[in-house]
Design a protein around this nucleic acid. Sequence first.
RNA 1: GCGGACGUGGCGGAACGGUAGACGCUGGGGACUUAAAAUCCUCUUCCCGUAAGGGAGUGCGGGUUCAAAUCCCGCCGUCCGCACCA
Length: 839
Amino acid sequence: MSSRFDAADADRRWQARWEEARSFRADSSSSKPKTYVLEMFPYPSGRIHMGHVRNYTMGDVIARYRRMQGHEVLHPMGWDAFGMPAENAAMERGVHPGEWTWANIRSMREQLKRLGFALDWEREFATCDPAYYGHEQALFLDLFEAGLVYRRESEVNWDPVDMTVLANEQVIDGKGWRSGAVVERRKLAQWFLRITEFGEDLLEGLGSLEDWPEKVRLMQENWIGKSRGLQFRFRVAEAPDGIEAVEVFTTRPDTIFGSSFVAVAADHPIAQATAASNEKAAEFVAECKAGGTSAAELETAEKKGFRTGLEVVHPLDSSWRLPVYIANFVLMDYGTGALFGVPGHDQRDYEFATKYGLPIKRVVAQSADAASEPIGSEAETAPAIAVNSAFLDGLTSDEAAAEVIRRAEAAGWGKGTIQYRLRDWGVSRQRYWGTPIPIIHCPTCGAVPVGREQLPVVLPDDIEFDKPGNPLDRHRTWKDVECPRCGGAATRETDTLDTFVDSSWYFIRFASQPSDQPFDRTEAEKWLPVAQYIGGVEHAILHLLYARFWTRALRKLGEIGIDEPFKGLFTQGMVTHETYRAGDGSWLSPNEVTRNGDDWMHIESGEPVTAGRVEKMSKSKRNTVDPEPILDKYGADAVRWFMLSDSPPERDLEWSESGIEGASRFVQRVWRLATGSKAASGEDLDLKRKLHRTVSAVGEAIEALQFNKAVAQLYELTTAIEKAKPSGTRHEAVRTLILLAAPAAPHLAEEAWAALGSSGMITDAQWPAYDPALLVDDEVTLAVQVNGKLRDTLSAPRGLDRAAAEALALASEKVQRQLNGVSPRKVIVVPDRLVNIVA
RNA sequence: GCGGACGUGGCGGAACGGUAGACGCUGGGGACUUAAAAUCCUCUUCCCGUAAGGGAGUGCGGGUUCAAAUCCCGCCGUCCGCACCA
């Protein structure tokens, strides 16, 4: 037996054993309690990165821990395989997106397998497989038939050179990221999913997600953006062109007497009508639309308006007229696309009024006495007391708002409403490498669903990327079809689905994957909801919201009986690394630099290098560390161990060579203990207590996903065992240590388990139990304070009563010296912990 | 602007309101070795002191408490999300 643990050999051997024994196959007919552990599935970029390693290691610890506790665990892996990078590769290298993707999957699968994850590979699938996306098309048609899918014109970012739609992130400084062409706003007919129909439900559901990070729930809440207010009509005075009223929404009906103008969006019918007959207005509308939409531009953009000449009548005072402006800051797709401005109590309105010389009136004040004070250099936005507001005077802002809503509803000019920020989900993508939308456009019948028996609508393989645009659009034999309804000439929808659709139900497909339907409800519900979902916080809103929506939609259709797909959610931190820059400002990778005293230098040139901040590993900063050579050098367990050590899992983990070295040392220490431990007799009570305490603490830490604490506990136990003299307890402790380390370092654990002569695989072993009676010592250390300052620590028997503890503390020489003859005024005793003497 | 999180040794980080700095990393000293690697022992918050001991200390300023890293109030800083949302 080697004195060093040979990770490369052990990794390979045990991975083969697990596969042979089908150890991690999830049996849905098992009578054991079921647990579904899931990590966000990867995009097959070709190489795994440290972020994957950290993510999947955490999930694996939970999966293995649950197995050892006697659970039947579903822990699957698959591929989020559609998306742009495959098309980019096709354009750059002429390789077919499918070929490129499948090759990437093959190499990433091999890489993942080297880490020894307890995954049920028999359930693996890729979303780009017709066997997956065909079922997605069926689900899409289910939603379509239920009225949850619709088509409408919508503005997109259009790249006129690549002839494609760009996501907002792909528009950089108003130009296409690939072509560099100035991006146009274009209206295209696109498919939408009615997520807004579930807005209230999605918001309410957040309350039940106790095992989700507060942060993520808040982000979703803000994203849904519910606000209550009043929607009402301003009647247009001397209405031309049939425009009789302007409908507006406000969250501050209490400020209605402070209004001094009405503003509408450039896309608003009133703006359009005005532009049609007024050249200047048309120019202004065009200018508004030309403006960029980037955050930076909006922040600095000046509030601008165009006075239409229209006037509206105040609903509470028919002699009061307000001018109507077209304004660049009004959004067409929030509320009604129109608002009334209250310059005294809204900063944006204040700026607008200042610029155009509109009245700035106070209608809210800290007290009734302050009613005549002018508004200063900023709007006062905080709610307080209504003033200068006729019948509202003296009411609080809340009361005043309620009163205005009451009167509006009674008089019929408005009503209390709720607005959401959430928009319907646009799922059309003008791209090839995605799930084809199973719709046929017929000139007579309109949009007709593809017949179920025709599914899957498979992507054609014979496509070319030599021209810009979507190749599906020019694939005549694929595109030209007969209408399923009338049999006439028709064309296929050539848009494909947003890849977020693919990831909105993959967790259901993992739980149940029949070939004739998307999933079997009974089978899927045996596993769902996912007990613990783990992934990056970058998916806090979109993916997690879409998956929640999709699940609710399926429930509405009667296809599944759950509404929340992920009971527990954990968002892990990133893996980071220091960055390095050469003298010319170019980024250098960690293996191009070396330490030179306190500084860094470029290995090749010897030039000094500037070490920059620690940042997320990224290709652009060149601070990535490829897991593969690290695996070669240290083995899977050291890598896994390091991923769990030091940093709390929700925080960033800084990659360091010394960190992985430390992890590797630990693996060897455990191996030495295992191979050096001989059966012996005799009990070591101290060690036994330590052991039971550790069993308890490690279990608790894993349950709480505090892997760094579990790791620290195991280090402590290891040291305690090393220092203990041979005994029966010690031999037992080694065995237990290996069981406790097994979820994190499974290859080492198997090898050590075998070395100890245990039967079976540790993978199938029981998690150790502990004796609660052994969690406490007979002797405790009492902290003794004088006036709250620690002066002594005393050893005392457990359970000492207050009087005895006090007497013991007062007997301390150090305490007496501090008291210096003064008699204590008060003594606080916390049993078995502390005595505080107040003098 | 709105919302949220976080500020603890040289570093990552521990600490039911009750002994601040567990555990790891780095660094110093030592053992083993012809030597190295590996391993083991030991020290490592700061200041004064040979030591015993004493003092200070969890971003800053206040407060509550017998007792505050922890609770409350006000600042400062860093990071994240959203953002012309009426």
